[in-house]
Design a protein around this nucleic acid. Structure first.
Lengths: 240, 240
DNA sequence: TGGGTTATTTGACCAAAATCAAATGTGTGG
DNA sequence: CCACACATTTGATTTTGGTCAAATAACCCA
């Protein structure tokens, strides 16, 4: 039964969901779940990789230390996301430090298992490639956003991604981690975040009390947010 | 002989250089070189892929159209770089428009050839994966740079990358394309670029007349530029 | 060579975001 | 319930980069 739960866990990852069942079971055989408390460190920047994690619950921040002792936040990942995929290529070390920012349940996937699988199974390598290429597109779009979007727009963009694609135009959600971290994730100061949020409310009719976000017309948010995006997409794939 | 030249061309790509000789020859069999004049379009954003290009000479800009009719420049690639790798994954369309910004010689690699190779040859898929994972790290660092580096620092960072790792501390090079495009590539306005450059000169002793850049002490530039970077790297791999 | 078209620079000004400082909330452990 | 630590907001100010406009420099084509 435990084995079955692990298989189910694995399948929450879009990458793993593409694998054939026997392969998933093979990977599951080497995995175990692990709980992390807020503040626990999953891995340190530059360390040799021993695991890759699939987040089943909670949030993990990826940071790199800056010269002045601060942290640059590269990402904050939630459930269904993988931590440490970059270690599948030389030098097989973690690029960032990963720290739980809430209680976290994660599936620990042995690094060696993935390495071996990639080396021995072309189909797996192919699927990882497909997965990484897709991620790469999102990241390139994010580079563009960092320079072409204003702070309020970046916040709106984040909220749209978080909300997924609501069937009706309504959004009702809770911020999954604190505003300071979100500000860092979006590349701005907390003060700027606060003010940008005020502007976003005023411009789009979004409401927020504490961590509770409500919006009657998601399209208004999309229109405001994607106004600066480069064509084609509704940003990231925020469908209309 | 022509075949031989094409093989040599292919081998200039770090990705292709990792392949076994027969594989390179197999790819070469489907390739041909093509010349583009400045302004020629290699591919259009959203078009179904037919080719991937390896730049043998000249420079190609990758852009996406913005709503206001402008262009967001995603990258400007020179020799040894591949254009269109993103098309190896669904939806198999170009993410950007690619336009020659100088005379360009490129090796045209049929898209189908690469697709088939990935599907049929696990080792090739593995090497592409390795290649893309490495690129991904650079791009994540670039996201950080867009928010943590100032305009003069971004220019310095670009120059360091362009200079490679000079054995002595000297840099002497020519900008390979115009300043307006470089400004766009670095995510700033041409006016800002011009002023930022003036500041960079003043701060680091760099000299520039027209497109000619000279610097006696590359370390001074590194110190100034990477001052804001997140630890570990000398930025990108600007070795000391 | 001379006009016409682009680059690039410079100046004046504006807007966005960072910084510094202080006030207001919020939550937790006595 | 209070005191302390920390998160968030607000205000005042500075810095950085963007915008508009104009001058200057380069470049190209008769």
């Amino acid at each position: 039964m435990k084995r079955l739960m692990i298989v189910d866990g694995l399948l929450t990852s879009p990458l793993m969901a593409e694998l054939k069942t026997p392969l998933v079971e093979q990977i599951a055989a080497g995995c175990h779940t692990k709980e992390f408390a807020e503040g626990d460190v999953l891995c340190h920047q530059s360390d040799a990789a021993h695991s890759v994690w699939l987040i089943l619950d909670g949030w993990v921040k990826l940071t790199r230390e800056t010269l002045d002792g601060g942290d640059a936040v590269w990402d904050v990942l939630g459930e269904t996301h993988l931590v440490g995929l970059e270690t599948l290529t030389p030098p097989f070390t973690y690029t960032t430090r990963a720290v739980a920012v809430s209680g976290v349940t994660a599936l620990v996937i042995p690094h060696t298992a993935l390495r071996h699988l990639i080396d021995s199974n072309g189909e797996f390598a192919r699927l990882v490639l497909k997965f990484v290429l897709r991620q790469q597109q999102d990241e390139r779009l994010e580079i563009e956003h960092r320079t072409h979007q204003t702070a309020p727009q970046r916040i709106g963009c984040f909220l749209l991604k978080l909300a997924g694609t609501p069937l009706d135009g309504r959004i009702d959600l809770h911020l999954p981690f604190d505003k300071g971290l979100l500000a860092a994730r979006l590349g701005m100061q907390p003060e700027t975040f606060s003010r940008a949020l005020a502007k976003l409310k005023q411009e789009t009719g979004l409401r927020m009390t504490g961590a509770h976000v409500q919006m009657d017309d998601a399209d208004a948010l999309r229109a405001y947010t994607c106004g600066a995006c480069s064509g084609s997409y509704p940003c990231h794939g925020h469908a209309t």
